[in-house]
Nucleic acid binder design. Structure first.
Lengths: 349, 349
DNA sequence: ATGAAAGCGCTAACAT
DNA sequence: ATGTTAGCGCTTTCAT
């Protein structure tokens, strides 16, 4: 069916080893022979079989990228950074969308390693991945990483991010400050929530558990949670939402309930997705350097792949989150001293 | 390095053909032998090499999906439909993002076919794809398809969509109605613009060329184009934008210029991405059944793959666009009779 | 510079 | 029920 090097060899009257050499720009082929082979390959519309090639060379120059949610613009932004780095270094990337489904995540890890990609970048859906299946390939975590994994990872300091968000609201003078997040059991969440807790502790404030709510990652969930709080009359005067998608849902919920942002309820999100900057949204948030995270993850992975010794130590990169104030919260805050040591939070390299 | 069926065979004291049979649930293996082999495979943490398997079976049960732009939520929505169908039928999908780069598109087609995916679904960035490279595999177009291609495709009736949009604005009583799009030379654009033209013709209106502008797919471009028009004072009282991302940029541009939507300039987009429904945006638009398009494309492709005869005729599915009116244009319009035959526009199957 | 041949890991006849 | 063997398309020694 398909044209192979044997067909070309027959046509060119050479052995198929020579064809292979010519096609791969290998040393030691007569220039005339080479150009003849190349011409014939073109005429026959030859397409090399990467499967067969990979079988012998065990290199594919492709990376797998496993993402949990393409509808949250945060992830495409990270993907863009990964792709641009990969492309520069001669790799292609296969993107797999798990839709927050842990089973699909495991399946994709298996699939990608069976298909012998050279490495995997993964933003895991939960606090851990199936390690059974994960030992097969170079792999780096991005955006979210199991705490105790021996693998490289590129994340931001989520505790500090949560701290910055809560600190901002506190310093704006809001009295009751709620938290709306995904679940107490997901790792990232815990970190952002932990940062929020630390800010409260630092400022000597009590956390009111009535204002801490959990749901999932969907915008609609944010909408529902806040609407319910407002309906019952039991709502805080400011909210820290675990991510911007959730926050935007909350924003709508507040407005649909007839209240104003930030006058009645102030709001801050997390991620700084593009939509948060829209004039109609103007959501205060904690920025993550999304593209940079992606690029860095790709760099580390490729370095790991090409370092054939195989045992360079894992790199744990922790990037800095950054407060971005827009209209959904007050714009200015007092400059407070730093409540805990920078060095306990930030590790680079 | 990696454990292979030979390792298992040695361990289990059988030939490696038997291992292969056991692992693939093939007929004719002693249950005891089978379970012993399975146990050993587990112990050895065996991962089948899909590369080798694919080399002999020439089936991979993976699809390639080539998309031009992950930052436009329209495409992830289509991808979701594709993935859910693929998963049901036992296929995985590799997503490749071209970022509107035709070169990358060609590269990815080549790459995917070299890696012997079973088929490709592509939303091409332009009016044609490199046919040199595209003959290798079953392939179906989604969202956008070269007009004269002999391949299957799933699109909406863009002419009718453009017509509906313009008709709506005309019937709302707007007098000067502009069009902001990507480029006259991209195919989809031509269709949506053509629909707009037909509506004008049908209603005996003249098109004012000053109000037809082209840029690219970015939101910022919409912002800039409208801002410039307003600055010079030469702007229409309604605008049809070729897609919602562009329209949202235009919305911001109008508001930043101190004008109101729809009072000063009415606006309608195209695609009906999730953000268009937001309370703060409330963008009128033309809905595309995004998930359905994706599902249908995947169904057709898989059917094509599994139909081993290979020459089922291509299917050209054209789905119906639908007018969605929100606050960015007037809500009601007169019911006009149908200016051209339904049958000239809609073909299903 | 070129050819012959082995082998990557696996499946699928064909034997036994 | 199991083993033997030939190949899938390619790269890579080792000869020549």
């Amino acid at each position: 069916m398909n044209v192979t090097i044997k067909d070309i060899a027959r046509e060119a009257q050479v052995s198929y080893a020579t064809v292979s050499r010519a096609l791969n720009n290998k040393y030691g082929v007569n220039p005339d022979t080479r150009s003849r082979i190349l011409r014939i390959a073109g005429e026959l519309n030859y397409s090399p079989n990467a499967i067969a090639r990979g079988l012998v060379s065990s290199r594919s120059f492709t990376l797998g990228l496993i993402l949990p949610d393409l509808t949250n613009p945060y992830f495409p932004a990270v993907a863009a950074g990964i792709e641009s780095c990969a492309q520069e270094k001669g790799y292609s990337v296969f993107l797999c969308n798990t839709n927050w489904d842990r089973r699909r995540e495991t399946n994709y890890i298996r699939l990608l390693s069976e298909r012998r990609v050279d490495g995997i970048i993964i933003a895991p859906a939960g606090t851990s991945i199936d390690e059974e299946v994960s030992d097969l390939l170079p792999m780096v975590f991005v955006s979210n990483a199991p705490k105790e994994s021996p693998r490289s990872s590129v994340v931001i300091d989520n505790i500090r991010g949560g701290y910055l968000a809560a600190k901002h609201l506190i310093e704006c003078g809001y009295v009751s400050i709620g938290f709306i997040g995904v679940s107490e059991h997901e790792m990232v969440d815990n970190d952002r929530l932990e940062g929020y807790r630390r800010a409260f502790r630092r400022y000597g404030k009590e956390i009111d558990p009535r204002y801490i709510r959990f749901g999932d990652f969907r915008q609609q969930t944010g909408y529902n949670l806040i609407s319910e709080m407002i309906r019952t009359g039991e709502y805080p005067d400011a909210i820290f939402a675990e991510n911007d998608v959730l926050a935007i849902g909350i924003l709508h919920g507040i407005k649909d309930s007839g209240l104003r942002v930030p006058e009645d309820i102030a709001l801050i999100g997390f991620d700084d997705i593009a939509f948060s900057a829209y004039q109609e949204i103007q959501l205060s948030t904690i920025n993550q350097p999304k593209e940079e995270m992606g690029r860095t993850a790709a760099e580390i992975l490729i370095e790991q792949i090409e370092e054939n010794t195989g045992d360079i130590p894992p790199r744990k990169v922790i990037l800095e989150p950054e407060l971005v104030t827009r209209n959904s919260s007050c714009r200015e805050q007092k400059e407070g001293e730093h409540p805990f040591e920078e060095s306990t939070l930030v590790h680079r390299g």
